[in-house]
Design a protein around this nucleic acid. Structure first.
Lengths: 143, 143
DNA sequence: TCTTACTGTTATTATAATTATTACAGATTA
DNA sequence: TAATCTGTAATAATTATAATAACAGTAAGA
């Protein structure tokens, strides 16, 4: 699993949290702890799906363009990381005579893809707003 | 996700498929397409959980020590790869003042761990025997 | 008892994937 | 026209993963 999903969720939660629901890639990058160019790459993907609006030039940046109580982590995962559950390394070899060796990669593909759908079923029950609430809970639990 | 889970499943399926339910690390490695030492490392983990028996010395190797119709992929995943869903990269920074930045990593940890449990719920419905059957299906579908 | 064939494990090297960084074109504001 | 932003691609650095080598220990059989 790469971490673009994490960055996307963090960015959206941050935008939802901020009163003006806006931030530049520099501000988001400082909060997330990564490079602004990486944030822009992820945000550009969220923009294509309509979750954020962007504005170039002075005073520009990213603005939340969705209802955080409605957008789910499943939608974000599909936008940024679908297919990343499966490891890139593949078992067996299609050229082999052995039935196991030449079909295992296919079957593991099936299984990882079904497992990913199960995971998505869970993520579809968690919204950006829920994540923000979880953060508030963790924070208030710190005495 | 690392691929030790895949190697473990492949190895068990291969053992279940073979009439004598036995194989050496060299034989398994050739089938899986990896190095025998890697197979031994994974098998050593399966042995600790009792899924296979091992015998050192001439004529030795690995023998299936479980019922392939009962052992599930969830058990194998827990034995080899639990925790590997979560990316190693972490968002935010605990030292920050910002509530989002300093708690996001914790909350994403929660979420990845719950998502992993959902995935496990699916994997617990797939046995080694089921994987073998899927391979037979794919094979027979090849005209 | 000596040789051969295994597992078990660690250390090291090689490769691949991920992340960080740089660079710059294009947009917008003042 | 200078300053500030996004968008994107190219490259460098870092980290994770996999392959390989090496060798101690165990067992079988000549």
């Amino acid at each position: 699993m790469n971490s673009e999903f994490t960055i996307a969720v963090h960015s959206l939660v941050l935008l939802a949290y901020r009163l003006d629901h806006m931030a530049t890639s520099d501000m988001i990058a400082a909060n997330v702890c990564t490079h602004p160019a990486r944030v822009r790459k992820v945000m550009s993907c969220l923009k294509k799906q309509g979750y954020v609006a962007t504005k170039e030039g002075t005073g520009g940046g990213y603005a939340l363009n969705c209802n955080p109580a409605e957008v789910t982590l499943a939608q974000i995962y599909r936008a940024t990381s679908i297919g990343s559950l499966k490891p890139s390394w593949c078992s067996g070899n299609e050229e082999e005579d052995c039935m196991i060796a030449c079909n295992m990669a296919d079957v593991m593909d099936q299984i990882f893809s079904e497992a990913e759908e199960q995971m998505l079923a869970f993520l579809s029950r968690v919204t950006i707003h829920d994540v923000l609430n979880r953060i508030r809970e963790v924070q208030s639990g710190k005495t």
